[in-house]
Amino acid sequence: MARSAVIAIGASAGGVSALRSLAAALPETFAAPILVVLHVGAHRSELPELLSAVGPMPAKHAEDDEAFHPGNIYVAPPDRHMIVAEGRLRLLRTPKENWARPAIDPLFRSVAESYGPNAAGVILTGNLNDGTLGLLEIKRRGGITVVQNPRDAAHPEMPRSAAVHVSLDHCLPLVEIPELLVELTTNRKEADMPITSTQPGAVRHSAENNGWELERPVAVTCPDCGGALKRSVEGSIVKFGCHIGHSYTAEVMASAHFDELERVMRAAVRFLNERAEFCLQMAEHSQSTGFDDVADWHAASQQALDRAYKLRDLVEQDWITPETNGRLASASGGRDPAGLPR
């Protein structure tokens, strides 16, 4: 069996206590890096300090594009997915997965892609089922899959989901997991070092798009109710309709979607402007009360204002609108955009 070159651990509810117990039992000479995702959302996290305080391995919040080394614990920071790409850690503000950012699945998928049989994934206590699909990918690529015994977990749903859907290598009480991890990483050979995968379907890492590429949406949605639209063709006319009963010709649909796009973007400009004002008021409050975070509030206010102006400029740029050039109408009975015979 290949020795594990990296350990990826995911936890949610009850995870702070579980991770502290784990860190306290691991040796300073642990032969692999440990990558940790705890569901903290956008809230401030002191998990690295808590882990460093109880065990010999130093823990820190991961930084974007940093290398990672054995004997260290790297924790996903608030509001960022942490993944592995080309031997380095990447932090992404891509969409939430399973209602979470950071989420466990993105890390597990990337570790499976990069390390194959030399990866180990561990799921600890938590609600719902984040991590199950990622652990399944680790298993599919030959890695080691470990979960905390659900009967031993403060919140058993996450490990139970993994146990149901993944053919596990180990299902253990928390107290036995540190010894297993040491065993998995002991006497690791050079041949067990990271591999790089370029297989199709793997996690894509695009520097230009901050690690995320848009997929084609499952469906186009109704501008009135948000329901999925079904496309149909009557003669040469393209129509869209939802199950509620809203229906549109292609031209009307295009115009309605564009109006909704503009509304949403202008709402975002408003929210950014309001954030700038809120942060400015907090800066003034901090200054009057002697707090030392005045500069941070001012910087946040200026950032929001800068982005509001950029977004406003984007909204007001010229957009390509083929629905207004008459081509669709011309294909529908030789009528002009007003619906009158030519």
Rank of each mutant, 00 (worst) to 15 (best):
R3W: 12
A8M: 09
A13Y: 04
A13I: 02
G14P: 10
A18E: 03
A18P: 11
R20S: 09
S21N: 13
L22Y: 00
L26K: 10
P27W: 02
T29P: 03
I34K: 03
V36G: 13
V36K: 03
H43K: 13
S45G: 08
S52G: 06
G55Q: 02
P56I: 02
M57P: 07
M57V: 02
F68I: 04
N72C: 09
P77G: 04
P78Y: 00
P78S: 09
I83D: 06
A85R: 08
A85C: 11
R88F: 02
R88T: 11
L89P: 08
L92R: 12
K96N: 05
F108T: 06
F108M: 05
F108Y: 10
A120R: 02
G121Y: 00
G121W: 00
V122K: 04
I123W: 04
L133Q: 15
L136E: 05
E137A: 12
K139C: 00
R141K: 02
G142Q: 03
G143E: 01
I144S: 04
V146R: 03
P159F: 03
S167R: 15
L168N: 12
C171A: 14
P173W: 00
T185M: 11
T186H: 15
K189E: 15
D192C: 08
P194L: 09
I195H: 06
T196R: 10
A202N: 12
H205C: 08
S206Q: 12
A207I: 10
A207P: 05
E215D: 15
C222S: 07
D224Y: 03
A228Y: 01
A228H: 10
A228C: 06
L229I: 00
S232F: 00
E234C: 01
K239T: 01
F240D: 02
F240H: 12
S247I: 00
E251M: 03
E251F: 00
V252K: 15
A254H: 15
H257N: 13
M265F: 12
R270H: 10
F271D: 14
N273V: 05
N273D: 14
Q281T: 04
Q287M: 14
F291L: 03
D292M: 07
A295N: 07
W297P: 02
H298C: 09
A299Q: 11
Q303F: 07
R307L: 14
D313I: 05
V315W: 06
A331N: 09
G339L: 08
